[in-house]
């Protein structure tokens, strides 16, 4: 079997590689090229050098979107992971109906972002209206926490599943040995469970950080960037750069922003991977 794989590896690799090239590498390179162009459609692009980057970097809206996005990412990453981990802990300690709970917590993840955004908009606006507070579209702080609540509701279940898998893979001997040695519950948690689920934490924090940065659907549907771009995240800012003014130069600016954004997300997730990976232990 091993021999066969060695001989026929191209047959196995090619389909995926081809799909990756067509679906990712080629558009990415084209996008990179377009960020140096002024264009309306990708077939009619004129090369204009670094002008787009100069504009993108000097655009205040882009940087305020960056700070909003960064704050959102920090808050959502911490909250999602802490809550998901706590639920995972609860659901791995043999309670009645654990499977039912797991399903229930996972379900929100199956609904699309736009739909969720509109549903939560109605819900939260009703609550705010009853409390006599300004609605989501009028106050960026409410918009921010509205987005956090929405993302918690949607993503906690997914991360919980990953944590449950991590917790269940901890060998029972470790826990038993710890208990015999008289370790307290919190000692077991911090000295045994958390170090052993580090790989899950790596994955989950990677997913939540990148999801936070790339968030678009929920932002568009829940607040639409209102009031006056104050709750606009980076992806929505790029989208608005593209479509809210006419003329070829705006597509170029948007494209340059998109490239900067992409590099930023890659860098941040690489750093995060390095940090969490270094804390993983061998079982």
């Amino acid at each position: 079997m091993e021999k066969a794989i060695r001989r026929y590896w191209p047959v196995f690799v090619l389909p995926t590689l081809a799909a990756f090239c067509i679906g990712f590498i080629y558009p990415f390179i084209q996008g990179l090229y377009l960020s140096f162009c002024k264009f309306t459609t990708i077939k009619k692009a004129t090369f204009i050098g670094l002008k787009n980057y100069a504009y993108a970097l000097s655009d205040e809206g882009f940087w305020s979107a960056f700070s909003f996005t960064a704050a959102f990412t920090v808050a959502s990453t911490v909250l999602i992971n802490v809550i998901a981990f706590m639920i995972a802990l609860a659901l791995t300690s043999r309670i009645k109906g654990a499977n039912l709970y797991r399903t229930v917590f996972f379900m929100p993840n199956l609904i699309g972002g736009i739909v969720l955004g509109y549903i939560w908009q109605i819900l939260l606006n009703c609550v705010l209206s009853l409390l006599d507070k300004p609605l989501l579209a009028l106050n960026a702080t409410y918009g921010f926490w509205g987005l956090i609540i929405l993302m918690l509701w949607q993503q906690v279940g997914y991360m919980m599943i990953i944590y449950i898998a991590g917790l269940q893979s901890i060998p029972e001997d470790y826990l038993e040995a710890a208990r015999i040695d008289g370790a307290s519950a919190s000692q077991i948690l911090f000295r045994i469970k958390i170090p052993n689920v580090m790989p899950s934490i790596t994955i989950c924090s990677f997913l939540t950080i990148t999801n936070g940065f790339k968030l678009f659907d929920q932002n568009l549907a829940l607040t639409g960037g209102e009031p006056a771009h104050e709750s606009e995240m980076m992806a929505l800012n790029i989208y608005n750069t593209f479509y809210s003014r006419s003329g070829g130069q705006w597509k170029g600016y948007g494209q340059a922003k998109a490239v900067i954004f992409c590099i930023m997300v890659i860098l941040i997730s690489l750093i995060q991977l390095k940090v969490t990976k270094s804390r993983e232990v061998q079982q």
């Binding site: 300004p134 609605l135 579209a137 009028l138 106050n139 209102e226 009031p227 006056a228 608005n240 479509y243 809210s244 003014r245 006419s246």
Partner: peptide
């Protein structure tokens, strides 16, 4: 001038109506 202009006026009108602007 642009969609952006309309959105700006729209946001300001909304805030004015609600009393937050």
């Amino acid at each position: 001038p642009s969609e952006e202009w309309k959105n700006g006026v729209g946001s300001a009108l909304t805030a004015y109506a609600a009393g937050t602007g």
